[in-house]
């Protein structure tokens, strides 16, 4: 089985300068100023929507302040996919961030969790079907298998 190597695991070993800018019960946010990149790692198997929104709302001013161009969403610790959270994230949060000039999104899914990956696919399809006025088509969204790849791409 492939091991999930999260941002917390790998960042100390990489040559990028970084700073832990948010630490909450459900996740951590790392700023890589030289890369204009922000990494959000959810640290629990399941994140209730209130906590999910709380961390993402806290991220917004950092994106604006540091003129962040790339957002890496490390979902490797998650085991439960919560569609209402993802809908809010896709439809509202991404739109707000797009308005701030952030168009590049990289995502890392849990390894060896097929049901989660299928749920992501199902969720994306549901959003695409039900929400027509999103900015998704204008964004550069790619799924990556590691933090290194996500930063480099």
């Amino acid at each position: 089985m492939d091991k999930n190597i999260t941002a917390t695991d790998v960042l100390p070993a990489l040559s990028y300068s970084y700073e832990l800018v948010i630490e909450k019960d459900c996740g951590k946010v790392f700023l890589l100023p030289d890369q204009d990149t922000l990494i959000c790692e959810l640290t629990k198997k399941y994140v209730p929507i209130e906590e999910f929104k709380e961390i993402f709302v806290a991220i917004s001013p950092i994106i604006e302040k540091h003129n962040i161009k790339k957002f890496v969403f490390d979902k490797q610790n998650l085991a439960v996919f919560h569609q209402p959270s993802m809908e809010w994230y896709f439809v509202h949060w991404k739109k707000d961030m797009y308005a701030l000039g952030m168009k590049t999104h990289r995502k890392i899914l849990p390894k060896d969790n097929l049901s989660f990956k299928m749920a992501v696919e199902a969720g994306r399809f549901k959003i695409a079907t039900e929400f027509k006025n999103t900015v998704v088509d204008k964004l550069d969204i790619q799924y990556k298998s590691s933090i290194q790849e996500a930063i480099a791409s």
């Binding site: 439960v80 996919f81 919560h82 569609q83 049901s115 989660f116 299928m118 199902a122």
Partner: peptide, 10 residues
């Protein structure tokens, strides 16, 4: 809900 949604999608 996740399994339900995935099942409907599949």
């Amino acid at each position: 809900s996740m399994f339900q949604m995935t099942t409907v999608h599949l």
